[in-house]
Amino acid sequence: MRIGNLLNRVAGAAVLAFVLLVTSTGLAIWWNARQDARPASDAIVVLGSAQYNGVPSSIFEARLEHAIALYEEGVAPVIVTVGGRAEGDEFTEAEAGREYLANGGVSRDALLAVEEGVDTLESMRVVATAFGEHGWTSAVVVTDPWHAMRAERMAEDQGIDAESSPTRQGPAVQTRGTQFRYILRETAAYLLYRATGESVAGAPGIG
C-alpha cells in the first residue's frame, strides 16, 4: 500500500472518529436534558446567571423557581445559590438569587449564598469547598436543560455526589432553534472540558 493511500485512510478514520465523538456527545446532552433526578440530597445547588441590580434575569428566575419547587417537595433542606459579581455590578448572582428565594417564601435559615464563581467550573469548585465546610456530600443541581450534563460532571469531578434537575422554563427552552444552538455550544464546551479540564467563557450559565 502506498504511503499516500495509508495517510488518507488514517486521516479519514480520524475525521470519522471526531464526527462520531461530536455526534454522540450532542446526543448525550440532548438525552440528559430530558432527565429529571430528584433524590433526597444535602442541598439544592442553583447555578447563577445574569442579574440586573439585584433582579435575576429570566434565565436565572426560571432556575430559582424550579429550586423552590424542589425545596417544597422536600428534595433537600438547603438551597445553595452560587455566582460572583461582574465588573460594575453592585450585587453578586448568589446574593440576587438568595434574596429572590427569600422573597419567594424560603426561610433564610435554608439559604446559603456562595458569592464567587465566574463560570461553571469555578462555581463548582467554590461550592465543593462550601460543601466540605458543612459536611455535605450530595446535591441536586439546577440549571438549564442543555447545561445539565456538563454541570453535573463538573460537580462530580469536585467530589460532589450530584444529580441534575433542569428547569423546563425560560428562554433556553423556548424554541427549537434556541435549543439547537445551546446543544451545539454545550457540545463544544463539554468536549473542551473533558480534553483540558478547563471551562470556557460563554453566554450566561454556559461558561
Rank of each mutant, 00 (worst) to 15 (best):
G83T: 02
T81W: 03
L27K: 10
F18E: 08
E72C: 08
V15F: 13
Q35V: 11
D89W: 02
D42P: 09
G74V: 11
L47C: 03
V19M: 07
A69W: 09
E61G: 06
A94D: 01
R63D: 02
E72A: 12
L64I: 04
V55C: 10
A62T: 04
S58W: 09
L64E: 04
F91M: 03
V80C: 03
I68E: 09
I59V: 11
V22Y: 07
G12K: 12
V15G: 08
P56Q: 04
V10G: 12
A14I: 12
Y52M: 12
P56E: 05
D42M: 07
A76I: 06
G48A: 05
L47Y: 02
S57E: 09
A62S: 13
V45Y: 05
E95D: 04
L6R: 15
L7E: 15
Q51D: 08
V78H: 06
L20C: 12
E95A: 05
F91N: 01
V46H: 00
S41P: 06
R85Y: 02
L6H: 15
E72Y: 09
R34E: 14
L20W: 10
A43E: 05
A13N: 14
F60G: 00
R63A: 00
V80R: 01
A11D: 13
V75G: 04
V45P: 04
V15Y: 08
Y52H: 15
A14W: 12
L16M: 14
I79P: 01
E87F: 11
